Amino acid sequence: MTKAAIALDGSVVSEHFGKVREFLFLTFENGREISREVLPAPTADHAPGVFPNWVKSMGADMVMAGGMGVKAKQFFETLGVQVLTVPPMDVEEGVKALLLGTVRTVETDCGHGSDHDCGK
């Protein structure tokens, strides 16, 4: 069984992980959805490690977002959580890709503007 945390921005996968306000936790096995739950993020702060530790504490094996900074990726790797950075997509498109095992990832270290420091 796998549990994924999908960073939400309304009905799309959030392009900026550090500013996400809620997550869809999707539990699935063998291409079949078992459960889903939308939960608010633990804090509005963009503090290093807060979201990765919370996502891991919720039992997630992987996290999906459009853009994510280097530090967040490193936190997740240390915690054993697989990071999937994906192109812009609808949440249901992301769910379908997870269930089918066809998630297409893109290399991104942030993707939210030159006026922001992701700790690179």
Rank of each mutant, 00 (worst) to 15 (best):
Leu99Ile: 08
Lys96Trp: 11
Leu98Trp: 01
Thr105Gln: 11
Gly111Leu: 13
Cys110Trp: 08
Gly80Cys: 09
Pro87Asn: 00
Phe75Trp: 12
Lys71Gly: 06
Phe76Lys: 09
Arg104Leu: 09
Arg104Trp: 03
Gln82Asn: 04
Glu107Leu: 00
Gly101Gln: 05
Gly111Val: 03
Glu77Trp: 01
Leu79Trp: 06
Gln74Thr: 09
Glu107Phe: 00
Lys73Ile: 13
Val81Met: 10
Leu99Asn: 10
Val83Asp: 05
Val95Ile: 15
Val86His: 08
Lys73Arg: 12
Thr85Asp: 07
Thr85His: 07
Val70Tyr: 08
Val83Gly: 08
Gln74Cys: 11
Thr85Lys: 08
Asp109Ser: 14
Leu99Ser: 09
Lys73Leu: 02
Asp90Gly: 11
Gln74Tyr: 04
Arg104Tyr: 05
Leu84Trp: 08
Leu100Ser: 12
Cys110Arg: 11
Lys71Met: 10
Glu93Arg: 06
Leu84Glu: 07
Val70Pro: 09
Gln82Met: 07
Gly80Gln: 08
Gly80Phe: 05
Gly80Glu: 10
Gly94Arg: 01
Thr102Ser: 15
Glu107Ile: 00
Ala72Ile: 03
Glu107Cys: 00
Arg104Asp: 05
Val103Glu: 07
Pro88Glu: 03
Pro88Cys: 11
Val81Pro: 07
Pro88Asn: 04
Val86Asp: 13
Gly111Ile: 03
Gln74Trp: 01
Phe75Leu: 00
Leu99Met: 10
Glu93Val: 02
Gly111Pro: 06
Thr85Tyr: 01
Pro88His: 05
Thr108Cys: 15
Val83Glu: 03
Ala97Leu: 10
Lys96His: 09
Cys110Tyr: 10
Phe76Asn: 09
Val81Arg: 07
Pro88Lys: 08
Pro88Ala: 02
Arg104Met: 03
His112Glu: 07
Ala97Gln: 15
Lys71Leu: 12
Thr85Ser: 15
Val95Glu: 14
Leu84Asn: 14
Val70Asn: 09
Thr105Trp: 00
Pro87Leu: 00
Lys73Ala: 13
Arg104Ala: 05
Phe76His: 11
Gly111Thr: 09
Val70His: 09
Leu98Asn: 04
Ala72Arg: 09
Leu79Ala: 10
Glu107Pro: 02
Thr78Cys: 04
Glu92His: 00
Lys71Trp: 01
Gly101Lys: 00
Cys110Asp: 10
Glu93Tyr: 02
Val70Gln: 12
Leu79Ile: 01
Val83Ala: 04
Phe75Lys: 04
Lys71Asn: 10
Phe75Asn: 14
Ala72His: 09
Phe75Met: 02
Leu79Lys: 04
Thr105Pro: 05
Leu84Gln: 12
Thr102Arg: 03
Val95Gln: 06
Asp109Asn: 14
Thr85Trp: 02
Val86Ile: 12
Asp90Met: 08
Val81Gln: 14
His112Leu: 13
